[in-house]
């Protein structure tokens, strides 16, 4: 990991506001993500968690405030924006693997077309990554032939293939059958242990406890509370968080 910015945060959001029509989805968000940190964002549906994740690689634009990544403000458009996105991996709830390409092609497309790496080199690295997420044997298949868990692990490999400085996970296990959640979480835990900077929007409290450095609790477009997982889960300091936790942790 290159320490270009020294000890400055990798991502810094300052006074970020975002509306969808009349709905104020992000209200004055201030948030830093340090290098190597794993931030888990939890909170009730519609609270702005996914939007928070998506503004960091500008899949959603913001109305006001600033977002800096690796010391530079997010570019608005064009080649500079494409370059920024190539440094920020993204894993979607619905996998979004390229349907007309094989598993290996999904993983090698970015390195070949964006980074300009040779096909041979990209395929070798692609196979290593597929090996790492446990689906090397499926390399020649198409996404629709794989289970949801396998598709999501492919999506993680696709993000890793770009050697990103950070990976955003937007509810990566919410579309999975229950028996496939664990295989995806295991890959994510390994990534976290290896020092990848991650922002994970999830409802998996177990993952938050095991892998997070910090839990950010969002509701109604605001960061209501944040802290280390042990502290947050045992002694939440706000009523809103206590209320949320009581609803999901009782069973």
């Amino acid at each position: 990991m290159t320490e270009t910015g020294g000890s400055t945060p990798l991502v810094k959001l300052e006074g970020v506001n975002k509306h969808f029509g009349t709905l104020h989805v992000l209200k004055d968000i201030d948030l830093d993500v340090q290098r190597g940190e794993v931030v888990v964002v939890i909170g009730p549906s519609g609270g702005g968690k996914s939007t928070l994740c998506r503004v960091i690689n500008r899949l959603e634009t913001i109305d006001s405030g600033t977002i800096t990544f690796d010391g530079r403000e997010l570019p608005a458009e064009g080649k500079a924006l494409a370059r920024l996105r190539s440094e920020v991996g993204m894993v979607f709830q619905s996998f979004n693997l390229f349907s007309h390409k094989t598993i290996l092609e999904n993983v090698t497309l970015g390195p070949i077309k964006v980074r300009g790496i040779s096909r041979q080199q990209a395929e070798q690295r692609g196979m290593e990554l597929l090996e790492r997420v446990g689906i090397a044997s499926q390399a020649g298949k198409y996404p629709a032939q794989l289970s949801g868990g396998q598709q999501q692990r492919t999506a993680i490999a696709r993000a890793l293939a770009m050697d990103p400085k950070m990976i955003l996970f937007d509810e990566p296990t919410s579309a999975l059958d229950p028996e496939m959640v664990q295989e995806v979480l295991d890959v994510m835990v390994t990534l976290a242990r290896d020092g990848m900077t991650m922002m994970v929007v999830t409802h998996e409290m177990g993952f938050a406890r095991r892998a997070a450095n910090r839990v950010v609790f969002m509701a109604d477009g605001q960061v209501v509370e944040q802290g280390p997982p042990a502290e947050f889960f045992t002694r939440p300091s706000t009523d809103r968080a206590r209320d949320f936790l009581s609803k999901i942790l009782t069973h």
Binding site: L59, R83, M90, F98, S99, V114, A159
Partner: peptide, 10 residues
């Protein structure tokens, strides 16, 4: 599909 394509920097 388009979002995933943009997200890898295309």
């Amino acid at each position: 599909q388009a979002e995933a394509a943009r997200a890898i920097g295309l």
